[in-house]
């Protein structure tokens, strides 16, 4: 890559990894093939420190103010927010459906936990997504090894703690293989808290 490496500035606090913010917007009736998905997703920028994160985040629209069907993605630099990416292809995600009004707070708590390495699962975390829909919002956190039950259980436990979710919130774990197969990210095994 010809792009200049992003590094922490002087007196800034480095993060464990560099992260990239992405934005995507889905058009109604548009096919959701991975090709069109890749065309619809735009990089916002990459940061390497806590301070650089805040400079991006403070200027970004909050999920509650997004219109239509849009998503923010925050992924480790070098990992595309697609199940087909080499880092994610054997992985999966915890999916949490939220009633309207909760997404902004939950998204902030989720990404702060991720950036601060609160999940304690080594290099397993790929990134997180908030998807704004008309009737509900969905947040998800992706990890690399769907078959690693100790890791997925630990992520679930930390999610419950950092998100402070209402009782009866539905959490589902779904492998990317299944998401790609049925072309819908948000179905399958349901776990009610």
């Amino acid at each position: 890559s010809k792009r200049k490496a992003v590094v922490p500035g002087l007196a800034e606090h480095p993060l464990q990894y560099n992260y990239t913010f992405w934005y995507s917007r889905r058009t109604l009736g548009c096919p959701t093939s991975s090709q069109s998905y890749e065309q619809n997703i735009k990089q916002i920028g990459t940061f390497a420190s806590v301070e650089q994160f805040w400079r991006f985040y403070s200027h970004m629209v909050r999920p509650r103010d997004l219109t239509g069907h849009s998503d923010f993605h925050l992924f480790t630099e070098g990992i595309k927010p697609m199940g087909e990416d080499d880092a994610s292809k054997n992985g999966g995600k915890w999916i949490i459906r939220l009633r309207k009004g909760l997404a902004s707070r939950c998204w902030e708590n989720l990404i702060l936990a991720m950036l601060g390495e609160q999940f304690m699962v080594g290099e397993e975390i790929c990134g997180a997504v908030v998807s704004v829909h008309f009737q509900e919002d969905i947040i998800s956190i992706w990890n690399k090894t769907a078959s690693d039950q100790a890791t997925t259980a630990r992520i679930w436990d930390m999610l419950r703690r950092v998100l402070n979710l209402p009782p009866n919130t539905i959490m589902e774990y779904k492998t990317h293989t299944d998401s790609i197969k049925d072309n819908s990210s948000f179905r399958n095994t349901k776990i009610t808290l």
Binding site: V50, W54, L112, G116
Partner: peptide
Amino acid sequence: GTRIIYDRKFLMDCRNSPVTK
């Protein structure tokens, strides 16, 4: 290896630090 861990409060405090602004 060592991992760089920050809690929520620390990250929130950095938001208001002069270095961020």
